[in-house]
């Protein structure tokens, strides 16, 4: 029942402004490299969620919600939807649910690129983790205030 939920630290507040975009970019980096190297949707989601959480501790809940733009619930819903949908294309190829489907593209700048359903699934996991963690954190923080 502390009256002051956020930490009143100028250093942290200033740092949070810079750290938030950096951490978010890092989380996307983790998400994209996750298929063959350490990384993936889960820890990427945790990094992104902790970035917003840091922002919340440094400033306050309202600014954290503003910077998030989306309701955590919606992120959760879209993430779950992506996860389920990523299993469906396999059915049209006559294979069991969740069999990976890959599409090989040759793009002018990026060169050969393989895009597939596991990426969609990972994005789903990413969104679910951000949504879930922030839903719990925000509801706990709001109850505290």
């Amino acid at each position: 029942m502390s009256p002051q939920f956020t930490l009143q630290s100028l250093i942290l507040r200033t740092a949070a402004h810079f750290l938030l975009p950096l951490l978010l970019i890092f989380s996307v980096f983790l998400l994209l490299r996750g298929h063959n190297e350490p990384g993936g949707g889960f820890i990427a989601g945790l990094v992104a969620a902790s970035a917003v959480a840091l922002y919340m501790f440094a400033l306050d809940i309202r600014s954290a919600k503003r910077v998030l733009r989306f309701e955590p619930r919606d992120l959760l819903g879209w993430g779950l939807l992506f996860g389920v949908i990523s299993g469906v294309p396999a059915v049209f190829m006559g294979q069991p649910f969740f069999t990976s489907q890959w599409l090989e593209l040759t793009l002018p700048v990026l060169g050969d690129l393989k895009v597939g359903t596991p990426l969609l699934f990972d994005i789903g996991v990413y969104l679910v983790v951000i949504g879930g963690v922030l839903l719990i954190l925000l509801s706990l923080a709001e109850a505290e205030e």
């Binding site: 889960f42 879930g132 963690v133 719990i136 509801s139 706990l140 109850a143």
Partner: peptide, 20 residues
């Protein structure tokens, strides 16, 4: 561990609410 994390987060919220 991930499942335990989720369940534990829920338990903490629950116990906080129960305390209130």
């Amino acid at each position: 561990i991930v499942i335990g994390f989720g369940v534990l987060a829920f338990a903490v919220v629950l116990i906080h609410r129960a305390y209130e």
